[in-house]
Design a protein around this nucleic acid. Structure first.
Lengths: 334, 334
DNA sequence: CTGAAAGCGCTTACAG
DNA sequence: CTGAAAGCGCTTACAG
């Protein structure tokens, strides 16, 4: 690999001049400019970004920390980060931890040593080092955020969305409504699960509908867990007439599981999803769900993050993105 | 941020000693070790990986270049890279180009200046700079590979897999078989599309079945394009009894589209997919398809890449991973 | 407009 | 076992 020194030598100028040519900030004589340009081309020289980052102490990179990329909602969200970052001169690097503590730790190390100028965190579990004020690096927490977060967040109003779609079910005449949420026990409950369950219960309360504990099913946001929930519902002495699911993936599994057991959606049971993944349009029946606008979420996250990095004045601490209720075929009037 | 100098000063030793403590390679006195350890802790020091990479001219990072992460098959594959990399002490950084030339160029720049020690390329379109022997950096091309590739590749035998699943349709008595592949014209045809189509045609040829050009439908691997193909099939004067699809996503769209038009799968038409994404089990009907084992592909790719980087002797140039025919509900005997 | 030199935060022979 | 010093490839005041 050719270095800036090689270029300088070949062009017959100093490395400082080459550096200036590269940055484009200062003016050069037309002749020196031509010499440098020629040397760069014949050597097919590319600056070493590690060296550049080291001397500038910034890398123009943003990292996105995520535990897994295979959920459809997450992967759609991930797709939306590059464009807004690129528009402001930053690259984005996705780091997926596969739920592995060690792997996550290596990314945190990388972050602490300034591999990136800042990061987007897609889970609520923030590494303690990041919260330590002494050496925190800029970040914004997206989608899975603790309600008491004292750092920047971007998310939809999960509670309100859950309440809204549940109220829609109620408006169709349903009063026997089960819910299928994520894990919810003393060991583990994600912020999103808590908020969506809260919204669900709020809707029930507001309509004088009793909450049946036995109708609260727990999954893990996978389609498989939806299939399992179908089994549980089929075995109930008293079945609900509708099920609020905290994700499309679980709703899809639920519908499929119910179908296998001879229970039809929406004729026998109405089902709602959450997220509006692409597949939600194509399942049979298609899903009534809440759309989370991934582009808007990603744009807000990236722009906020860059504002923080560049210390702009107008940084918004907590950003709420509007969701949308999408009506399709998985729900019907009772 | 504390630097190695700060640690050295606080511990009362030289920076070299701190560096040695960090690398763990050389032995230190128990007392100096304790002093350094203490200093690192009180300063909560973390080495700057940019500086380290610069002086070692390696970063222990691997980059995965991908045009988009939202296809289910791709996102599953991406999830599988971290573990094998981590096992050998490397981090993986995913870089998604969103099909944007400029964004891709910035990643290529980063690569050329050694942001990573090597990369995995998930598309056949290799940046010319990477093929230029003068300054190539280690990489392996995965899944979408040109047949004439002179660089390391890892993939299944797409042609054989396509042939096999088509022969399965034929064994069920089908002879009127359409296919739904990716774009295939003079402007653009991906290697995978070409190979799967070849395999399909081979199976037809081997069974004296004529290939009908009008039964060759083109999509773009999205579910939407499958839905559109359904429309085309419905309008045909003579309809096929089976359709070979080059991806599960297109097959799912096709089935959904046919259902909307009152055409039942598999009763009226049998449909096969390709990839075996998670959703393939949950569609109605579930998909008969070819499974591409993503973990094996990712393992082979990462280990091969690291072998190349570390200049191991046993690097395999072209690796073929075994696929698997999965029989489910979307196909039936004619 | 251009150059010499110091500095970014590490690592690594070379001595001792 | 430990330290002084050079070097990795850039950028950036400071002079001229």
């Amino acid at each position: 690999m050719a270095t800036i020194k090689d270029v300088a030598k070949l062009a017959g100028v100093s490395v400082a001049t080459v550096s200036r040519y590269l940055s484009g900030a200062s003016k050069l004589t037309t002749s020196t400019e031509a010499k440098v340009k020629g040397a760069i081309e014949t050597l097919s020289y590319r600056p070493n970004i590690m060296a550049r980052s080291l001397s500038q102490s910034r890398s123009d990179m943003l990292m996105v920390l995520v535990s897994g990329v295979s959920s459809p909602f997450i992967s759609n969200l991930l797709s939306a980060f590059s464009k807004p970052a690129s528009a402001r001169g930053y690259k984005v690097l996705l780091a997926e931890t596969s739920m592995d503590q060690k792997i996550e730790a290596t990314y945190i190390e990388a972050l602490r040593s300034r591999l990136a100028d800042g990061f987007v965190q897609l889970s609520a579990h923030l590494h303690p080092e990041m919260l330590d004020k002494k050496h925190t690096i800029p970040f914004v927490n997206v989608c899975e955020c603790l309600p008491e977060a004292t750092y920047p967040t971007v998310q939809i109003d999960d509670k309100r969305a859950a309440k809204q779609i549940t109220e829609f079910l109620i408006s169709l005449g349903h009063r026997e409504i089960a819910c299928l949420v994520g894990l919810y026990n003393d060991q583990y409950r994600s912020p999103v699960t808590v908020k969506r369950l809260d919204g669900f219960r709020d809707a029930l309360d507001g309509n004088d509908i009793e909450f049946h504990a036995e109708w609260m099913l727990q999954g893990d946001y996978t389609t498989d867990s939806g299939v399992q929930a179908a089994q549980t519902i089929a075995e109930m002495k008293q079945r609900p007439t509708a099920v609020f699911c905290a994700s499309d993936t679980m709703a899809i599994g639920l519908i499929r599981g119910l179908a296998n057991l001879g229970i039809n959606v929406p004729d026998d049971i109405s089902v709602t999803g959450f997220d509006d993944i692409e597949m939600a349009k194509y399942t049979v029946p298609s899903l009534t769900t809440i759309r989370q606008p991934v582009e808007k979420i990603a744009n807000a996250a990236i722009n906020n993050l860059i504002d923080i990095i560049e210390e702009k004045a107008h940084v918004r601490q907590h950003v709420t993105i509007e969701h949308e209720l999408i009506l399709r075929g998985s729900t019907r009037r009772l």
